[in-house]
């Protein structure tokens, strides 16, 4: 879990740098166009091919950790603790399936683009595998995190028993880890 968290932080950091660069790139591009009649070549493609993909896919796992995915909890909140826990494991399994499929397809796409040396057509011929590679990387990360949550969660049920509310469960998983 520790190594996982470190790699994840690194990826999330890249996403942060991306969103920050994005902001300045757009502004500088607009300013150059109005002031010097000469926009920054390739801004459009760079944001579309790299920054957007990085900032979304590399923060997938962290968003899960921060409980950022919205869900409808009206009914869920009414269930007893044990059921909540079981449902939570079910949710994780669905999530693992969903992101694995996206990640696997993203991986296949990336390999294909890499083997064929695909480049974008335009003034700067960007290698395209560098654009899609963030899809499998991000998905791999969130799948690993979900999978570990599942393993640790199940183990905790057997060793400690059920005592936490579902929303505290994630926290507990991470805080238990710190102890080890």
């Amino acid at each position: 879990m520790n190594i996982l968290n470190k790699i994840d932080s690194l990826m999330f950091c890249m996403a942060k740098v991306s969103i920050f660069i994005c902001m300045f790139l757009i502004t500088i591009n607009a300013a150059m166009r109005y002031l010097f009649n000469k926009p920054l070549t390739g801004t459009y493609e760079f944001i579309e091919l790299f920054l957007m993909v990085i900032l979304v896919f590399l923060s997938l796992s962290y968003t899960w950790k921060l409980k950022g995915f919205i869900s409808i909890t009206v009914l869920f909140n009414k269930f007893p603790l044990l059921i909540k826990n079981l449902i939570y494991f079910g949710i994780i399994i669905l999530g693992v399936c969903f992101f694995s499929l996206i990640g696997y397809e993203g991986y296949a796409t990336t390999v294909e683009k890499w083997l064929n040396n695909e480049v974008s057509s335009g003034v700067i011929p960007w290698p395209l595998f560098l654009s899609t590679v963030w899809v499998p990387l991000g998905c791999l990360m969130i799948v690993l995190r979900m999978f570990l949550e599942l393993v640790i969660g199940v183990r905790n049920i057997f060793s400690i028993g059920i005592r936490s509310d579902i929303f505290e469960m994630q926290d507990e998983i991470y805080s238990n880890e710190e102890l080890e």
Binding site: C22, E45, I47, E48, M52, V53, F57, I102, G106, T109
Partner: peptide, 26 residues
């Protein structure tokens, strides 16, 4: 199934026009 999963996730994100969302959120 596989065809859509190959194209939709990447295409839904890799678009210059949609950078408005992260920018206004930021």
């Amino acid at each position: 199934l596989l065809g859509i999963f190959q194209t939709a996730p990447y295409s839904s994100v890799a678009s210059y026009g949609w950078v408005v969302a992260p920018m206004f959120i930021l």
